[in-house]
Design a protein around this nucleic acid. Structure first.
Lengths: 190, 190
DNA sequence: ACAATTATAGAATGCTCAGTCTATTACAAC
DNA sequence: GTTGTAATAGACTGAGCATTCTATAATTGT
């Protein structure tokens, strides 16, 4: 009963997410987004809200499309192998992520007190990811892949440090040194 | 033989550095810097150049005042103890760094291809830091504090991952979990 | 065909940005 | 005090920014 949209919101959001991922919140303008997403200015505001709201949605999309997939399947079967598979995924030189690192890591670095809303959202996503990582470790521990004396919450926090560090290195252009990272995982899980 | 400056360049640069450290390059405007540094617009441009040049100087100041001090004294005496002291420094909840993380880490996350000059400078500083860290490990190894079978270059890269991760966590507000970080260092240096 | 509804293009608004220009001011040497 | 030199305050420029407004276009149900 009205004119249909000339774009598909999920695809447009995906493009917005990748744009923010590559260049960051501050460095991307609304005009940049309009041309990348191929929609009109008004359509962007009507469909996704203002820049902060759009970023929040992009971040949520990133969480669903990337972060959750890294950890949510680990506990189901062969948690030890799957957890190592997750680590391998952190190291792997996927073209996209190799250049852009991780949107979560980047956002943790980017937002300060002057963007309280985004800062809080980003912090929550990071906390959720860490919690899930701890559950993965616990599952691997029950399977016997990680020794019982290990504190899984502590281990998850350490693994998250390494993940953030790897993502920073990828973004900086150097890529991740597979041997360095693998050696670290092997040691930490002893 | 002329009017003297009403500000002291080293102190002004220190303030600029801390401003960029806390808020990032993109989020800080020239007006922000002028009021923080307490000088006139023209004095800023005359003394420090444009925004990119000022940032480059601030980064160099950060390197000299913080990064170099972390690693340069390690090799001289008791390298093992001193290296652990450096790790302790990464974890310590210094008020300033706890809120702002590390300017190097933040900058690695912030600059992309659209700031090629700063990206390159930041990459070089990161590379220098990693090299020095490897030298620290080598010195500790010669002293017997690190086992001989360890590859110091690889170890330095891993330690740098953890450092970046800790700095991201500090900046995000959580601070660094002392036990998690210490456990990681102990394991990795075995 | 017409009415109701929603999407679109693009102009307009008001603000902030980095960087420059101009006129004035404060000092040192003489 | 006069002169030369450099620093300062603050107006100015032109571009870019996020966001809103307006007029037009494309649909669907009747």
């Amino acid at each position: 009963m009205a004119r249909p949209k000339s774009f598909e919101p999920p695809q447009a959001l995906e493009i917005a997410m990748k744009t923010f991922w590559r260049r960051g919140f501050h460095a991307v303008s609304i005009d940049d987004l309009i041309s990348a997403m191929s929609l009109s200015r008004q359509s962007l505001y009507d469909t996704f809200g203002d820049k902060e709201t759009l970023f929040a949605k992009a971040l949520s999309q990133y969480e669903n499309a990337y972060l959750t997939k890294e950890v949510d399947h680990v506990s189901s079967r062969q948690p030890g192998d799957r957890l190592f598979g997750t680590f391998a995924g952190w190291i792997r030189a996927d073209d996209q992520a190799a250049a852009a690192g991780c949107l979560l890591t980047n956002s943790l670095a980017e937002f300060t007190d002057d963007r309280p809303r985004l800062r809080m959202i980003v912090g929550e996503i990071n906390g959720n990811y860490e919690s899930k990582l701890a559950l993965c470790c616990r599952a691997a521990q029950e399977e016997g892949a990680i020794p019982n004396h290990k504190d899984c919450a502590l281990l998850a926090e350490t693994l998250l440090y390494i993940r953030h560090g790897i993502m920073i290195s990828k973004r900086a252009g150097g890529g991740a040194n597979v041997r360095a990272a693998q050696a670290a995982f092997a040691k930490l899980l002893q």
